[in-house]
Design a protein around this nucleic acid. Structure first.
Lengths: 206, 206
DNA sequence: ATTAATAGTATCGGCTCGATACTATTAATA
DNA sequence: TATTAATAGTATCGAGCCGATACTATTAAT
């Protein structure tokens, strides 16, 4: 009898676990749809597709090691051919400029124009989301931030995926005594502004 | 002097609020991308596009009032023409069947086939997400669920949007003394299974 | 009885996005 | 050092997404 009730318990626990997982997934998918539709709407006013707005947004939050077509490719999870096309359009429309890398002639760096920055300021975060966020109390905001951090970390860690995090959480980051910061990967010092940007080479502290 | 420091304080508070909002948005956008890419990958194995998988997924979690093309349209946030096309493809590929509504001859109901249910069982939640969720402790799962609930509620409420919730949180739901449930909108009694499905007519309790 | 609203379909064009094939440059290796 | 492999980026093609528009059929409103 004890064995049976233990078994029932196990099944129940598994069921509840599954339900919680399903619920988180369903919520995320719903949010994802709402977000994407908003980005589509916002971008449409400037003749841009959602994926193009997202590329611009990425370039506005990444550091100088991560502003290349390949980094955008990894962030958006598409193929480099696709991204190359999107970037071509964005350049033609005057939202970004390209310049070659000093050291590695294969690479180019992408730079947002004033028009792009203006566009992003107006559209990201999207109005609906922005409005909603302002109606959340401090406590809820913290809950959400923590929750999203948890899930993102696990997802990215469990898959050998690039994490695109900021220096503060990176194992290559070295804080000097005088307050300055050094990247142990590139051996370059980083400004305060730069420390807040996401990096393609980011690896979480073990 | 007091005035100045108060002003500085105000500016700082506004800045931190903005940063938190930006961070939540950035995280959500990143998660959204990861999710969409996974759905794309999963769907590709069956020759389906992401949006088609999402339509099937919606139909697997909605109740009998909400299994129409128009409801799918509202859930996915696209135009009805677009959705009509997607559904036609899904029907042709044997993932769903249509049947006319008894009362309203304009409406049709969509029903998933066995093949569709099998597909969903294998692909939703997506492998990567599923795996990640299992590596989260109970506490994190609750944090995330609560956080997402908060933000979804506010977003949907603040925009006169359909909330697509379950009966339990709906103002039309009436719990009888004998444990049975009635929908005050349709005046029909609802089974326990049905109570867990999302509804197009859902309105949160005031 | 007429008009308006709602559910759904059909068609078209611009765009996405993966697949493939290609060039140029740098890194690895024998 | 010569060869090979790996990496960054571009070009092109085709299947399919998606909004816009126009349409039919049915029900609701006046």
């Amino acid at each position: 009898m004890n064995k049976i009730s233990a078994l029932v318990n196990m099944v129940l626990i598994r069921y509840y676990k599954h339900m919680k997982k399903k619920q988180i997934y369903d919520y995320l998918e719903r949010l994802s749809n709402l977000l994407r539709n908003e980005v589509r709407r916002a971008g449409a006013e400037y003749g841009l597709q959602p994926v193009q707005v997202e590329a611009l947004h990425y370039l506005s939050i990444c550091n100088r090691y991560s502003d290349t077509p390949m980094a955008v490719t990894e962030y958006l999870g598409q193929t480099k051919g696709t991204v190359s096309q999107s970037l071509k359009v964005l350049e033609k429309k005057g939202f970004l400029s390209k310049r070659a890398d000093k050291n590695d002639k294969r690479m180019i760096h992408l730079k947002l124009t004033g028009a792009a920055k203006k566009l992003l300021k107006k559209t990201i975060p999207t109005p609906l989301f922005s409005h909603a966020c302002e109606h959340l109390d401090e406590q809820s905001q913290i809950r959400i931030t923590n929750g999203l951090t948890d899930i993102l970390q696990v997802i990215q860690r469990s898959n050998g995926m690039r994490s695109f995090g900021v220096c503060h959480t990176c194992r290559y980051n070295k804080k000097n005594k005088d307050g300055s910061n050094l990247c142990n990967l590139t051996q370059e010092s980083l400004s305060q502004t730069e420390l807040q940007l996401i990096c393609r080479e980011h690896e979480s502290v073990a």
